[in-house]
Amino acid sequence: MHPTGSPAGRLAAVGNQMIEIHLWLGAELARIRASLDADEPGPARPSRDLRAHCLTFCAALGRHHTGEDDGAFRLLAEEVPELRPVLANLITDHEVVAGILGRIEELLGDPTPPPVAQLRAELDGLAALLESHFRYEEKRLVAALNALTGRPGTAEDLLGLTAPERPVG
């Protein structure tokens, strides 16, 4: 867990923060998928709240991957050149994820809401890909990212999101 009182402008265990972001994104996606079963606004169509939650999630995941590509991955490519093939694989994954997110956003942006089964299929595919992607990314990058601690900038600069604070207690 990252220190909650870390001074602005300092990185604190960026790799650990990446894991926290992945856990949060995974939990949010699980909540969305679970809510598909509980959501019954009409004839197998997602409710407005579910649509909003889904679109918010898609935007957060997109920001995270763009932040990694433009921040952490560029820095790691300079600092640890042997990671370049891993980074290229991860960027390819990000492109595939962006395609899925685009399809989800298109489904949810249609004035006629999509059938839940169609949305579920996209979310299930996204969940399977992200599980593999997150584990690979964490296995290959956490130590290198944690070595960046103390550099100027913020985790959000490098990861696209700040790890959500966990409730104390």
Rank of each mutant, 00 (worst) to 15 (best):
Met1Leu: 14
Met1Gly: 13
His2Pro: 14
His2Val: 15
Pro3Arg: 15
Pro3Gln: 13
Ser6Met: 14
Pro7Ser: 15
Pro7Met: 15
Ala8Thr: 10
Ala8Met: 13
Gly9Ile: 09
Arg10Lys: 15
Ala12Arg: 05
Ala12Asn: 13
Ala13Asp: 09
Ala13Leu: 15
Gln17Ile: 02
Met18Ala: 14
Glu20Trp: 08
Glu20Leu: 15
Leu25Thr: 02
Leu25Cys: 09
Glu28Pro: 00
Glu28Tyr: 02
Ala30Lys: 12
Ala30Ile: 05
Ala30Gln: 14
Arg33Glu: 05
Arg33Met: 13
Ala34Lys: 08
Ala34Pro: 02
Ser35Asn: 14
Asp37Val: 07
Asp37Pro: 00
Ala38Lys: 08
Ala38Gly: 05
Asp39Ser: 05
Glu40Ala: 13
Gly42Phe: 06
Arg45Gly: 00
Asp49Val: 11
Ala52Arg: 15
His53Gly: 03
Cys54Met: 05
Cys54His: 06
Thr56Gln: 11
Thr56Asp: 13
Cys58Pro: 00
Ala60Gly: 02
Leu61His: 01
Gly62Thr: 11
Gly62Pro: 00
Arg63His: 11
Arg63Tyr: 06
Arg63Cys: 02
His64Pro: 04
Asp69Lys: 11
Asp70Arg: 14
Asp70Asn: 12
Asp70Glu: 15
Asp70Thr: 12
Ala72Asp: 00
Ala72Gly: 10
Phe73Glu: 00
Arg74Val: 14
Leu76Lys: 08
Leu76Asn: 09
Leu76Pro: 07
Glu79Leu: 11
Pro81His: 06
Pro81Met: 05
Glu82Gly: 09
Glu82Leu: 11
Leu90Met: 12
Leu90Arg: 03
Ile91Ala: 14
Ile91Arg: 15
Thr92Gly: 14
Asp93Ala: 03
Asp93Cys: 02
Asp93Arg: 04
Glu95Lys: 14
Glu95Phe: 10
Val96Cys: 03
Val96Asp: 06
Val97Ile: 12
Ala98Ile: 03
Ala98Lys: 09
Ala98Gln: 08
Ala98Val: 05
Gly99Val: 03
Gly102Val: 07
Ile104Pro: 00
Leu107Ser: 04
Leu108Thr: 06
Gly109Gln: 01
Thr112Gly: 11
Thr112Lys: 11
Pro114His: 01
Pro114Lys: 04
Pro115Leu: 06
Val116Thr: 12
Ala117Gln: 07
Ala117Trp: 05
Ala117Ser: 14
Ala121Arg: 10
Ala121Asp: 11
Glu122Tyr: 04
Glu122Phe: 04
Glu122Gly: 09
Asp124Ser: 10
Leu126Gln: 07
Ala127Glu: 13
Ala128Pro: 00
Leu129His: 15
Leu129Gln: 10
Leu129Phe: 04
Ser132Tyr: 12
Phe134Gln: 04
Tyr136Arg: 15
Glu137Met: 05
Glu138Trp: 04
Glu138Phe: 05
Lys139Trp: 10
Lys139Pro: 00
Val142Ile: 10
Ala143Pro: 01
Ala143Glu: 15
Ala144Arg: 07
Leu145Ile: 06
Asn146Lys: 09
Asn146Gly: 09
Leu148His: 09
Leu148Gly: 06
Gly150His: 07
Arg151Val: 04
Thr154Gln: 07
Thr154Leu: 01
Ala155Val: 12
Glu156Ser: 03
Asp157Phe: 02
Asp157Gly: 04
Leu158His: 01
Leu158Gly: 03
Gly160Asn: 10
Ala163Lys: 02
Ala163Leu: 08
Pro164Ala: 11
Pro164Met: 08
Val168Cys: 10
Val168Phe: 12
Gly169Tyr: 05
